[in-house]
Amino acid sequence: MTDTNEELATKIDIADWLSLRAHLERGGVIVVDPLLELAEVGAALAADEVQKVQRWLSSSLLSKPSIEQIQKWDADKGKIFNCLIISPYVLIQEPTPQNP
């Protein structure tokens, strides 16, 4: 993990969908697949690593929320996400269940 990744990892927060929805209105929400590390994605965006980000986008590891996702989350406004702000974007990721 690079220094930037480590620094960004400390900035990952938890937010509910109701709090995040305002960012959706301005097109700033990006969904990060659980296969990726949130801090790594944030570091790549901050460093403008276009090829890496394009690869994630083309393989659907990064995406804008779909209409189906938005409807599902609107029905469960208490839905919790891990989030990381890399202005102007808010990266969100559904938490993965921890192994016992």
Rank of each mutant, 00 (worst) to 15 (best):
M1Q: 11
M1F: 15
T2K: 06
T2E: 07
D3S: 10
D3F: 07
D3M: 08
T4Y: 06
T4Q: 14
I12V: 15
L18T: 15
S19Q: 13
G27H: 03
G27P: 05
V29C: 07
V31Q: 03
V32K: 00
V32H: 00
L36H: 02
L36M: 07
L38P: 02
E40Y: 01
G42I: 01
A43L: 04
L45V: 06
L45A: 01
A46R: 14
A46E: 11
A47R: 14
A47N: 14
A47V: 04
A47T: 09
D48H: 11
V50E: 11
Q51N: 12
K52H: 06
K52G: 02
W56K: 01
L57S: 09
L57M: 12
L57F: 10
L57C: 09
L57A: 11
S59M: 08
S60A: 11
L62N: 01
L62P: 01
S63A: 15
K64T: 15
P65W: 01
S66F: 03
I67T: 15
Q71W: 03
K72H: 12
A75Y: 03
K77S: 10
K79P: 02
I80R: 15
I80W: 06
F81D: 04
N82C: 08
I86W: 02
S87C: 07
S87G: 10
Y89A: 09
V90D: 00
L91M: 06
I92R: 05
Q93D: 04
Q93K: 08
E94W: 02
E94Q: 14
E94M: 09
T96P: 01
P100G: 13
